[in-house]
Amino acid sequence: MPISNLVRIPSTPPVILPLPSDTKPIQWSVMIPVYNGLAYLAQTLLSVLSQDFGPDLMQIEVVDDCSTEGDVAEIVEMVGKGRVGYYKQPVNVGNIRNFETCINRSRGEYIHILHGDDYVKPGFYNAITQLFIDFPEAGAACTDWRAVNDHGNFIWSNEPVGDERGILKNWHQRIAIRQYLEPPAKVVKRSVYEDLGSFYLVSCAEDWLMWNRIAAKYPVAYHPEVLAKYRNHEQNITSASFKNRKNFLDIYKTMLYNIAHLPEHLRAASEKASRKNFSFYFANLAHQQWHANHDKEEALIVAKDALTFQVNTYSVKQYLKLLFKIAIGYKSKTG
C-alpha cells in the first residue's frame, strides 16, 4: 500500500524490509527529512557535505514532505550541486511516515536521520564510524549535543549523555526516565530498524520512544564530544504543540510505555523519577510560555500538565507563582 494511503501515526511499528538483493549496500545513509523551515536547510546540507565520504560510501538525500514554503529542490540543487539526492512525497504524510520513508529509501549500514533544521559539527561521521568499529555489538551510536536557536546560538546546558567513551552504562533505565538525546546526535544501524520497525505511536516524542525500544535490546555506544546541534525554534513540531496538549499527551504516553518495558524491579522508582523530571520541566515551561506569548490559556494548560505528572512542592509553587503573575499582568521576559 502506498505510504500516502496509510494512517499518519501508526499504532504498530511499520515493517522495514531488508534491501533488495540487487541493491548495493554502502556504509552511510544521511537522510534529511524536511517540511518547511527552509531557512536552515542550507546549513544542514553544508554541515554534511563538509564531511562527505563520497558517493561510494555515503548516501545523502533530502526527503521532502510536500513543503508549502519555498522550493526545497532548488535549495538541494544549489547547495548539493548534484551530490545530494531529492525525493518528494506525493502528498503530505506527516513526520512519522516521512521518517519511515527515509529509512526505507536508505541504502547504508548506518542511518543518520538528520532533520532539516539541525546540523552536525566537523568530525561527527568519523567519530560515529569509529564507535561502530570499536564496539561492533552496538546497535546505535551517539555523540553529545547542544540546543541552539534560530541563529545557531547556544540556548541551554544539557546534562552529558554519558561519562566516558564506550557503551553507555545503565542506558535503558536512564533513557526511560528522561530524554537525554536529541535526533541529530544519534545514528542507528539499518539492521536495527529492520528488526524493530520504524517510528510509531506518537508524533512529538517519537525519538524518545525509539531510543527506548533500541535500548531495551541493543547496546548504545557514545562519544563524549559535542558534535551535533539541535535547533529549537517556533516552527518546529515541539514548540507548536503545547496549547493543544499534543506535546504533553505524547510525552505522557511515551513515559508509560518506557516504564512498562523496563525490568519489573526498576519500574516503580523509574516512574517516580520520570514524573518528577517532567513535572519540573512543565512547571518551568509554563512560565517560559507566559513570558514569550502572554497567553493565559496556554500557560495555565502547561502548568496544570506539570501537576498531572506529579504534585510536588516545586510544581505547586510554580503554579501559584504563575497565577500571581497573570493576576498582576507581570510579563517581563526575565521575571
Rank of each mutant, 00 (worst) to 15 (best):
R174W: 03
Y40I: 00
N36E: 11
P55I: 12
H294N: 14
A268Y: 13
L209D: 02
K333E: 14
P2G: 05
F278V: 04
R231V: 02
N258H: 06
A141H: 03
E77K: 14
R190V: 00
E77L: 06
D22A: 11
S198R: 02
N153M: 11
H115R: 09
D118F: 02
I75G: 00
K217I: 07
I96Q: 01
E61I: 11
L131F: 01
A268N: 14
A185S: 11
P2F: 03
K121A: 15
L49Y: 08
N312W: 07
A42R: 14
E74L: 12
Y230I: 03
T129Q: 13
G70D: 09
A141F: 02
F324N: 13
H294D: 09
K217Y: 09
K81R: 15
M58C: 10
K121T: 11
H151I: 07
Y40A: 04
D118R: 01
K253V: 05
E194H: 05
A228Y: 00
P10G: 04
V7C: 12
R190G: 02
L17F: 12
V62P: 00
T12R: 12
G116F: 00
A327H: 13
R146G: 10
Y119S: 04
H233R: 10
A306E: 04
G139L: 05
L262G: 02
K246R: 15
Q310K: 14
P263R: 07
A299H: 06
E77S: 12
N312H: 14
K169E: 11
T68C: 09
I60T: 04
I237G: 06
I301K: 05
M255F: 07
Q43P: 01
G329N: 09
E109G: 08
I237C: 09
Q27R: 15
N244T: 11
M31T: 04
I328Y: 12
A127S: 14
I60S: 00
G162F: 05
F280L: 14
Y281G: 04
R105M: 11
L262I: 04
E298P: 08
V220R: 02
Y200K: 08
I16N: 05
P160M: 10
D118M: 04
V148C: 06
A216N: 09
A176T: 04
R178S: 09
D207F: 15
R8G: 07
P224T: 08
I32A: 00
A73F: 08
V187M: 03
S274V: 04
N312Q: 14
S274L: 05
Y110C: 05
P160Q: 08
L227C: 03
D295C: 12
Q51Y: 08
Q27M: 12
E298Y: 10
S279H: 04
T254V: 12
K81F: 06
V187R: 00
N170W: 03
L256W: 12
Q179N: 13
P55T: 12
K246F: 07
K304S: 13
P20Q: 09
D52E: 12
T334A: 11
I111S: 01
L114D: 01
V62Q: 01
I16L: 06
Y314V: 14
D163T: 15
R107V: 13
S21M: 12
Q179P: 03
W208L: 06
